[in-house]
Amino acid sequence: MFSREYSESLTLGLVMVGVLLLMWLLNGSQFVTIGNLQSMAFQLPELGILSLAMMITMLTAGINLSIIASANLCGIVTALILTRYVTPETAGAETMALVVLAIAAGLLTSVIIGLLNGALIAIVDVSPILATLGTMTLLNGVAIVVTKGYVISGLPEPVRFIGNGVVLGIPTPMIIFIVCAAVMALLLNRTRLGVNIYMIGSNPTACYFAGVNNAAVLMKTYLISGLYAGIAAIIMISRFNSAKADYGESYLLLTVLASVLGGTSAAGGFGKVSDLVIALIILQLVSSGLNLLQISNFLTLAIWGIILISVMVVNHVTQQYRERRVTA
């Protein structure tokens, strides 16, 4: 009756509504206050943008284990420039210029990291999990060497606005996330690169013989993944008002969890940005809801795991049911 993708989106949507109702029921009216909605909108973007960075590599049947390490390194580069050159004496315009420059340097770092990953995977032909395991360790090492393990803190006001500001009632990180998600959706659905990314994930050999330059597509994929990690880094340092070599390490496996919950296949070729966004909302609803009930964050992790396995089981069962009907 339904196509596979449609039925998976439906399952996800139902889970979202179910979780929303459950959390509403458990927390009462305090769950849907402006304050709580806003705090959810502040928390979601970090994991959200990092998950987009993870997802695009998973579409090509790859993975990027280095996103958190790259995000931290980019954050450190930006924070170092800011704390070194922006002093209370620097004037408004000069501060703005330095902020833009520092962010540009951070994003440039992320692009270089993306190219390094891309080169290892596309040209040297190392499997993505191994290549990024290596760069993850290396980048983390570089970040520790640069900072000697210390925290770099005290960022100027304009930078703090990126992570903590509100425009027309919407938190700035949320606006950045919406733009990132929209750009990713357009890229995947409306451009040749997007089609090629899905094709490589489904069947790299067929894709190659269809005249696609696989290496170039993979390079671009990891470049975009790196860039998104860099954008997440700017939000992270702004929200923490500091940068450090080991921030957000627990996010790594969670980005895979979010992507897979959002229907992205680990074998490549399948996954939609809209479903990922729904998955992120589910995770955020659970996390905020349990937090309001003052339940430990660790139980939230466990429940996220249970939701992931349950959704995968439901998808598996419905798919088998459909196959059986087809053969009958």
């Binding site: 895979v256 897979v260 680990a266 074998a267 660790f298 466990a302 795991g305 396995i309």
Partner: peptide
């Protein structure tokens, strides 16, 4: 349930540890 081992074990890591 025919779920990829990396996904299963990421989920169970969080469940066991949590």
């Amino acid at each position: 349930f025919n779920i990829h081992s990396i996904i299963t074990t990421i989920a169970t890591l969080n469940i066991f540890y949590g």
